[in-house]
Design a protein around this nucleic acid. Structure first.
Lengths: 139, 139
DNA sequence: CTAGGTGCAAACTCTTTGCAGCTGA
DNA sequence: TCAGCTGCAAAGAGTTTGCACCTAG
């Protein structure tokens, strides 16, 4: 079954207009295998639609984030990095040498987090787990 | 034994000058039970020494961070928040209603993180774990 | 047709930096 | 003494916003 246009359908259902610019930005996010910054998204979106502006990229990303369609990450404090929320929840491992971002998931850690929060009297709404490491040099 | 001036001693040993401004900033960090932002630190430091400037706060925090004396956190993307590194390692639970930051530590989670990284072929250098939650309403 | 979206450029927030004068060791 | 530190103010980086025009539905 083809659900590649599901996001657009959902947006329309919420009364959000599906514009050329938004389609270009969504296309970029769908194609991205990295976690691009706003600037990267702008550059790539302009390929498909040169009229896209920086302001629209930021406004669209904010809109999609609020809608739960995209996730905003702040890995290194040098500007946010975005990804489509589509798949299963995951955390990130950032390679300190290459900057590469690896996604992973651990049900055990998720469970432990919930337990710890419960002990402190809290319900977790969301969380952020980032591991920063290096691939040991082969010798 | 009194080691309240250990940081100053260490800094001097590294050839770093212990100035009035730096003492004021260190004092603020030692007194803080919250995780103040640069702006808060400036305001509080000015009480003890009105000559402290914004530039010096940022320069001193950067210096202390590099020295491993302070930890820089970026909880909400609205400016970094600092704390003295002195104690044991811990992670943070942020109360979404009050903004309060609670520190916690779990040896189990630390261990799991290392295991996961190892499976992916990495050694963890450092990590960031933040839980965002709410205290369930009593009923 | 018209409410919502857009480009442009200016404004904002947080942080960094160049420079000339100051000061701790 | 004098290298390192400081305040000031200007510059940067990333993001947000006001406004007049545009366009999807």
């Amino acid at each position: 079954m083809d659900n590649s246009a599901q996001i657009e359908t959902d947006l329309r259902a919420e009364g959000v207009r599906v514009t050329r610019q938004r389609l270009a930005i969504l296309h970029v996010l769908r194609m991205a295998s990295d976690h691009p910054r706003a600037e990267d998204i702008l550059t790539r979106a302009k390929v498909q639609d040169p009229s896209v502006s920086q302001a629209t990229v930021y406004r669209t990303l904010a809109m999609l984030e609020k809608a739960g369609t995209v996730l905003k990450n702040e890995f290194d404090g040098a500007g946010a990095r975005y990804e489509l929320a589509g798949g299963a929840h995951h955390d990130h491992l950032i390679d300190l040498d290459t900057g590469e971002v690896i996604e992973f998931h651990s049900q055990k850690i998720e469970r432990l987090q919930a337990e710890i929060a419960a002990e402190l009297g809290y319900d977790i709404e969301w969380h952020r787990l980032e591991l920063y490491g290096r691939r040991p040099k082969a010798r």
